[in-house]
Design a protein around this nucleic acid. Structure first.
Lengths: 221, 221
DNA sequence: TGTTAACTTAATGTTCCCTTAAGATTACGC
DNA sequence: GCGTAATCTTAAGGGAACATTAAGTTAACA
């Protein structure tokens, strides 16, 4: 997650940058409005922290300018301007949140996280060149869609969710087929075969390995 | 836009309800946590305003409970609990914003609008050559008007609003029919059929795809 | 209150997927 | 290398889910 900080007070910039990097974010900084505008024009950020009083272009105008081209990147004001009128103006300009200085770093981090919650959500499972998009219910191999049946889809999803762990036949029967007693007619084999065929998995790129006498395991190579 | 207020202080409830209705919102209120929970379980709201200190179930627990089933409806805390720790706890529980009492109504409205910005954006819903104009309540295919019944309209709108995401039969029953228990007589199929027929959608040009065993998905091609 | 449109249920037709089983192939122990 | 057991592969039957149509029920409106 890449955060852009547009702020001119060096102390605050350093404080924010260090703190956010420790939180695991990639941070870029701009120390005036026009620099910030330039960066936004040419790069994609996941979130923008914006001071109001800035050299060259003030934060409010910058916010409006950003919103002309980009309606989606979350913008959070971080400013000493603390009146209701200013807050409202900031939000009207297109900001998603408005935090008044002095602020608690902990709260800032939490308010940032609010905007990242949904990004994490759309879980995309991957296994080598295979991608599963759960919300779209599709499987891609090398960016090409592969149509699987419901069971095939569930089985593949299960294996990838348990990537790196051996899945025994009994576990698979229990979790994918909801069969809780010892009973195997060879269904699993049939579906494994179908999956391997449809995904065109050759033995040398065996993302899905057979563990004889036990079950199967999915693995990135 | 339908807002749910969960708050026990009558004065505040009335103040909020009246103010928000004047802003053009549809407002429902609950005066304790369990009532609020019940409403959320059985209805769809566009935003929830939540007090912290509530009879029966407190706001924090209610927030967490809502988030188990529903990760998307914006939740805004509106509470006298004003420490950083409490703010962080509220946000961590799944809230999208946290406003401390006493608050400015003007700011509240603006912060609410933040969450509705994107909804307004897609007032004109489209799916391939299909267009829905919500304000006029009409559907166009290739610029030609197609007359749908109410349910057909709602179902199509729902699918297009969730374009690119799989809608399960249960979700559809819940959100379009407001049926919250396992119960399917085949109504959905009948309406899907009607929609496909009226919009002249062949299965091979699958703007609306059937996902066997799951539900349906709308997709631009 | 009668008529009509819309919604729901029920019945039938159709498609496609899951399962089974049986033969072919591979892995492993001796 | 040979035999055995596990796995792979294939194809067909049966069944579940969906599509479609029609009939029954409700709701709306004149």
């Amino acid at each position: 997650m890449h955060i852009l900080i547009v702020e001119d007070e060096l102390g605050i910039v350093q404080f924010l940058q260090q703190g956010l990097q420790e939180e695991g974010y990639l941070v870029t900084t701009a120390n005036d409005g026009s620099k910030g505008f330039e960066l936004v024009q040419n790069h994609q950020y996941d979130l923008i922290l914006l001071d109001w009083m800035l050299p060259k272009i003030n934060g409010l105008d910058l916010c409006k300018a950003i919103r002309i081209k980009d309606q989606h990147t979350p913008i959070i004001f971080l400013t000493a301007k603390d009146t209701v009128q200013e807050t409202v103006a900031g939000l009207k300009a297109g900001a998603n949140d408005y935090i008044k200085k002095p602020f608690s770093f902990e709260e800032l981090v939490e308010r940032i996280k609010v905007h990242f919650r949904h990004k994490k959500e759309d879980k995309e499972l991957t296994l080598g060149t295979i991608k599963i998009d759960l919300s779209k219910h599709i499987v891609l191999k090398n960016e090409e869609e592969v149509t699987l049946t419901q069971r095939e889809f569930e089985l593949l999803t299960y294996l990838i969710q348990n990537k790196g762990k051996v899945c025994t036949r009994n576990q698979i029967l229990k979790d994918v087929w909801d069969i809780n007693f010892e009973y195997d007619t060879g269904v699993i084999d049939v579906f494994m075969n179908a999956i391997r065929k449809k995904l065109n998995l050759k033995i040398e790129e065996d993302y899905i390995k057979t563990i004889r006498g036990i079950g199967y395991i999915a693995n990135d190579l």
